[in-house]
Design a protein around this nucleic acid. Sequence first.
DNA 1: GTGGTTTATC
Length: 543
Amino acid sequence: MNPLWHKVHWSSFIIHNHILLQSPNIISSNCSCFISTLSVTNPIQGHIRNGKINHARQLFDQNPTSRDTVTWNSIITYYIKHNQMQYAHNLFDQMPKRDIVSWNIMLSGFNKTNNPHKLHQLFLQMNRAGEIPNHFTFSIIISGFINTFNVLVPQLHGLILHLGLHSNVFVGSALMRGYTRLKDCEALHRVFDDVVVKDVSTWNALVVGYMELGFTVEAQMTFNKMPDVNIISWTSLVNGYIKNGKINQARSIFDNMPQKNVVTWTAMIKGYAQNDNYIDAINLFVSMLESATRPNHFTYSTLLDACAGCSMFLLGNQLHSCILKTGLLCEVVVSTSLIDMYMKCGDIEVALCVFESMEKKNTVSWNSVIGGCARHGLAKRALCEFEKMIESGAKPDNVTYINLLSACVHGGLVEEGERHFKLMGMRYGIKAEMKHYSCMVDLYGKSGEIEKAEKLVKEMPFEPDVGVWGALLTACGLHSCYEVANGVENLARDHPTIYSMLVKLHGEKGEWSRAIEMRNKMMETGARKQKAGSRTEFVHGVT
DNA sequence: GTGGTTTATC
C-alpha cells in the first residue's frame, strides 16, 4: 500500500475517472515476432535483434573471426539503447578498427544521455583520429551542443559547407535550431534556403524559429505556404503564439486544428496557466478528458503548477489521486510539481511525504523541498535537506542557493548564510546572481548588520535592482538607520516600491515635507493602489 | 549498425 493513499480523499476518484477508464490500452503490437522471422546472415546480430544480448556476447567473445566492425557497432548500439553507456564506452575503446558509424553511434549515445561535455570531447578525439564527419555526425553534434556549445554552430556550419553537406535535411534542421538559439534570423533563413529537398520538419523548424525570434507574422505566413502540415506544425504555431503572449490567437488556431494530441492540449493549458488564467486552464483540462485524450506526465505537471499558482488545494488533491491511478507518480516532473503544489498550498507534511517516497530525485526536486521548507520558516530543515542533497550526489544550482539563502534569512542564520554564499562559487562554480545578493542583503539587514549589507550592495558586480534596494530599505526601517536610507534615495532608480518605502521611513522620522515629496515621486513613477481581493474561491488551507 | 520538428517540474 502506498503510504500516500491515506492522504488522498477517496471522493477524488469520482471525478473524471469514468473518462480515464474508458481510454483503452491499445499498445499491444508485437514487433519482435516479425523481426525474429527475418533471415540474418550474422548470428550475433540475430541475437541482438531478438534482445538476447548474453547469447550475442558469448558468440562474440568466443569467435574472434566474427568480430567485424558492423558487429561491434551492433553490440555498442544495444548497450546504448539499454542505458548502459559505460559498457558501450568500454567496448568502443577496445575496438581494433572504428568506422564513421562507430563514432556516430558513440556520439549519439552521449547526446541521448545528455552529456554535452563528453560529446564535445569525443568529437575532438574523432577529428584527431582523422575521421571525416558525415551528415549523421553533424546532426548529432549540433543538437547535442544546443544548450552548452551553441557558439560553435557557425564554425560547424563552415565545416558543413566545406564538406558539401548543407543540403541535407537533417543537418539543415539541426543548424536552423542552432541559429534560432543564437537569434540569427538571417542565418536561419539562409540555411532553410540551402536545403534543396525540404520536408515538413524543415518547414516546422522555420515556423518555430520565427516564433522564437518574435516574428509571428512571418511564422504564420510560412505556415500558410507549407506544402504539407502535420500535427507538429499546428502545435508549433499554437505554442509560438503563446510564447509571444498572443493567447487568443493561439486559442483560435487551437480550435481550428483538424486534430489535437496530448502535446497540443498541454501546450494550450500551460499557456493559460502561465498567464494566471487558471479557470480557462482547468476548463480546457476537462475538455481534454472529454475528448478522450489521455493526460501524460507533462499535463499533470502543468496542472499542478496551476494549482500551486493559485493555491487550489482540492483540485491538487484530486489530481494527486488521478496520478496515483495512472502510475505517473514515478515521473520526476510529476512528483516535483506535486511537492511544490502541496508546499504552496500549505500542506508541508504531505509535500515531505511525497518527497521521501520518490525513488529518483533530481536537482529540481531537492530545490522544491528546500524552497518549500524555507518559505514555511523551517530553516533548520531546509539546511538539513541541503546536506542530504549533497550527500546523495545531486548537484546544487543557482535556484538551490536562492532557496538555501532565503532559509537562512527566515532563520536569522547569518554565519550559515555567509558560509554558503562563499562556498557556492568556490566549490560549485555557481555565479552569484541578483537574487543571491538580495538574500544576503536581507540576511545582514534583518539581523541588524546594516554596514555589512551596505558594503555588499556597494561591492556588487552589477547594478542593484528593486529587490536589493528594497531589502536594504526594509532593514533601515527595522533598525531606524535613516542615514543609510538617505543614501539609497540618491542611488536607487525611480521605482514606486522604493519611494513607497521612503514615504514610510520619512513619516516615521516625522519629516513630513520629505515624506510628501517621496509620495509625489511615487505617484510620478506610476504607482497604483492595488485592488484588494482575497480570491476566496481559490484559497484552501493556505497558511 | 548512426540523424532532425511540438508540451517539461524549482
